[in-house]
């Protein structure tokens, strides 16, 4: 039973990572932009949810509104700043988005302060399923897992079965070709960027009740997302899914086996993958 709980936690964490890193890897794959500020939106989503749910008293209201606000910020950011980076060296993309992280972090400090906050689990889901006499599993975590799975399925459907998805796939493999086919590239880019941002914010929002809403939360998760992208292969959604789950497992396993070194497990996994398949799991050599 103990292991079942750990497994469920690993899957839940992995799926949450997938929400974050799918946007990141799509933005890499399609626009060729490395967006370090991606993690900041995880934080933005969590803080907006904290703020909105305190104001309105309802998490069900806070999550969608918070995500929508993040989507709008994403659109604004893409059209004003990120757009100028598409053909620039990665170096400048890294530096500029690093600057954005500082800006977001300080704005958070100015508006929300530096305290750690908690968000209440909504009443409906605030109970646990007893597994043994002493162990039980909180339903809200199962809820997160289910929602993440639903979104992953939706993503899969959009990318593989719709016209917008066809454009995304075309843009991912060959932007010039996509442009020649009459795809409105600026619109596609803005949309993909904003959706990626919204996914990150949504992940932060839905995870807020189980993780604390704290300064620096976005940076921590960003690094793990970068590892996901490296392991999964840039631009590969399927790779991101596999890598997210792998990391979820590695992290959980690390916490059980060697709690002190659990932070290292993820990186060791990455080092092994780098030696074995430098181009990532999802990409062909």
């Amino acid at each position: 039973m103990f292991y079942l709980i750990q497994l469920l936690n690993a899957v839940q964490y992995g799926l949450l990572l997938f929400l974050l890193s799918s946007g990141l890897t799509l933005i890499f794959g399609i626009m060729g932009v490395i967006n370090l500020a991606h993690g900041s939106f995880y934080m933005v989503g969590a803080y907006l949810t904290y703020w909105l749910s305190k104001m309105t008293g309802s998490l069900w209201f806070a999550i969608p509104i918070g995500t929508a606000i993040a989507f709008a910020i994403g659109l604004l950011l893409e059209t004003t700043i990120i757009r100028r980076l598409y053909r620039r060296d990665h170096l400048y993309q890294v530096l500029l988005t690093f600057g954005l992280i500082l800006v977001f972090e300080e704005l958070r400090s100015i508006f929300f302060g530096d305290e750690v906050h908690g968000v209440a689990v909504p009443e409906v889901l605030n109970f646990s399923i007893p597994l043994t006499e002493t162990l039980s599993y909180p339903v809200y975590r199962l809820f997160i897992t289910a929602v993440c799975l639903a979104i992953a399925a939706l993503l899969y459907f959009v990318i593989h079965k719709t016209r917008a998805g066809m454009m995304i796939r075309a843009g991912n493999s060959n932007p010039e070709m996509a442009s020649a086919l009459g795809v409105n590239i600026p619109l596609l880019f803005a949309a993909v960027f904003a959706v990626g941002i919204a996914l990150a914010a949504f992940a932060g929002a839905i995870a807020a009740p189980v993780t604390s809403v704290a300064p620096g939360m976005g940076n921590q998760v960003l690094i793990v997302c970068l590892v996901v992208v490296v392991i999964g292969g840039i631009g590969s959604i399927n790779g991101a899914m596999i890598a997210s789950l792998l990391i979820g497992l590695a992290d959980t396993l690390g916490k059980i086996l060697a709690p002190e070194y659990s932070g290292v497990a993820v990186y060791l996994l990455m080092a092994a993958i780098l030696l074995w398949r430098p181009q990532g799991l999802g990409n062909k050599s």
Partner: peptide, 18 residues
């Protein structure tokens, strides 16, 4: 909040003075 000024400066440098 000096990092706010620094972050803004970084953005400006990258966009205007590479």
């Amino acid at each position: 909040h000096w990092q706010l000024s620094m972050g803004t400066l970084i953005v400006i440098i990258v966009l205007a003075f590479p």
